[in-house]
Write a protein that binds this DNA or RNA. Structure first.
Lengths: 83, 83
DNA sequence: CGAAAATATTCGCGGTCGCGTATATTTACA
DNA sequence: TGTAAATATACGCGACCGCGAATATTTTCG
């Protein structure tokens, strides 16, 4: 399932969901993207000062991509996903 | 049109495209998102150390959102867009 | 319950952010 | 072509990144 993200926290939550889907630990993902487990932890926590490079490296390591698009009206289901 | 981004540069290019579509200058966007024109410039240039907060603030100011999804096979047209 | 695994957090360090301010440089168009 | 608008770049500053390394803390599961 695609993940919609409008805040750093939602970005982090999306990364975490996909990482777990792939049965990877933070340390495992960190190895793939040449970052520390502590850095993955902060990314998933949604620390707003996280660098774009870290996000894109994580997406690549998880075989994900970003789509930028106009905001959609949220369905009830999508609203659930925000929590 | 939605924009696919796999690198900081592509993220920046996507932001720029949407900003121009809305007839906004970098300074105008900067005002909306409480950042300087110089910061918008770096975001659009795809500086990898740009902070996630800056990206999300820009998306909000442009009424955009992110989608995180599995990488798609690129169509010929999508490949064009990468350049 | 208890141990192991996973995740969160800390220290000092070097680097670079975004900031204010200001100035090049490039682009648009009359 | 010439000027104005837009964009890129520079300086010093305070802040906080991600790093190595290490240590809490929490979660998982036999």
């Amino acid at each position: 399932m695609d993940t919609i993200a409008r805040t750093p926290q939602q970005v982090g939550a999306g990364i975490r969901r996909y990482r777990r889907q792939k049965k990877l630990t933070q340390a495992g993902l960190g190895e793939k993207m040449h970052a520390r487990q502590a850095t993955v932890s902060k990314l998933e926590a949604g620390v707003p000062a996280t660098q774009l490079r870290i996000l894109m490296d994580a997406l690549a390591a998880l075989d994900l991509e970003l789509v930028i698009r106009p905001r959609t009206k949220l369905t009830a289901e999508a609203i659930e996903d925000l929590f």
